[in-house]
Nucleic acid binder design. Structure first.
Length: 246
DNA sequence: CAGATCACCTGCTTGC
DNA sequence: TGCAAGCAGGTGATCT
């Protein structure tokens, strides 16, 4: 998306969901219209448009899409007309968020792809919590979601209910590597498209075909052949191999 | 503080 | 065929 939006001016911005945009639509439009997009970046799961004196934060939630030059379609709750082209935010469930310079972006934990092992291990040791829900806690680590938490734990051979503070250094090392590997691999395959996710051009990802446990309840573990199980942990579906993950 | 439950939404799948 | 229940990639409030 960077080559498409960098240096573009926002001519018009329109919003239409009280759930996606909290506060006044007109106030947000007024903040955006006429500004130039200096750059685009990512912090955890937030897409950030750098607008000079502030930034626009876009979170895709579960079903959000941010599309370049999309055709008109239902559930479009944010629409940006640029000096060249358009951006559309589409989100059927409206769990996504569009916000102006929100505080919450500053309260996120370290980036999983750049946190050093020593810091990761120290943070683990400080927590009396089960590892799976902890990995999903965005204040602990910013950016892991349900799919990649399950996949990373599977690659590392760690049970999702393991207590974070009791994970040994060698196993923490494996987990740290597994998290970085799974994210790198997923990015290389352009993400996991289970039902809704597409990139800015509307293209689906392919990584869902390489999931080891996520969405594979009742199927054999590709490592050992045991049956993949699904439990609920912290309110989230959790997939793991009972033999590989102790 | 950990963790469970619920709530915010729509839409698809499953089971009766 | 129809309908209700269950489930979904996220996050945050509230209660125990």
């Amino acid at each position: 998306m960077a080559p498409f939006v960098t240096g573009r001016r926002i001519l018009r911005a329109e919003f239409s969901s009280r759930f996606v945009v909290t506060g006044s639509f007109d106030d947000l439009s007024a903040k955006l219209e006429g500004r130039t997009i200096h750059g685009i970046s990512r912090r955890a799961k937030f897409i950030l448009l750098d607008l000079g004196e502030g930034f626009l934060s876009i979170h895709l939630g579960m079903t959000g899409r941010l599309l370049i030059d999309a055709r008109p379609q239902p559930h479009t709750y944010g629409f940006f007309e640029l000096d060249r082209g358009t951006l559309a935010f589409i989100d059927p469930r409206q769990f996504g968020k569009i916000e102006w310079s929100p505080e919450r972006v500053t309260r996120l934990g370290p980036e999983p792809l750049s946190i050093p092992f020593d810091e990761f291990f120290a943070r683990l040791k400080a927590r009396h919590a089960r590892i799976k829900p902890l990995l999903l806690n965005q204040a602990f680590l910013g950016g892991l979601g349900n799919i990649y938490a399950d996949e990373a734990l599977h690659r590392a051979g760690i049970h999702p209910k393991a207590l974070a503070s009791r994970i040994s250094a060698p196993r923490a090392r494996k987990l740290h590597q597994a998290i970085q590997q799974i994210l790198s691999d997923a990015i290389e395959h352009r993400g996991s498209s289970i039902s809704d996710y597409v990139d800015a051009e509307g293209e689906r990802g392919e990584f869902q075909q390489l999931h080891g446990v996520y969405g594979r309840e009742g199927e054999p573990c590709l490592q050992c052949g045991s049956t993949v199980r699904r439990i609920v942990l912290g309110g989230r579906g959790t997939h793991y191999c009972p033999k590989c993950q102790r």
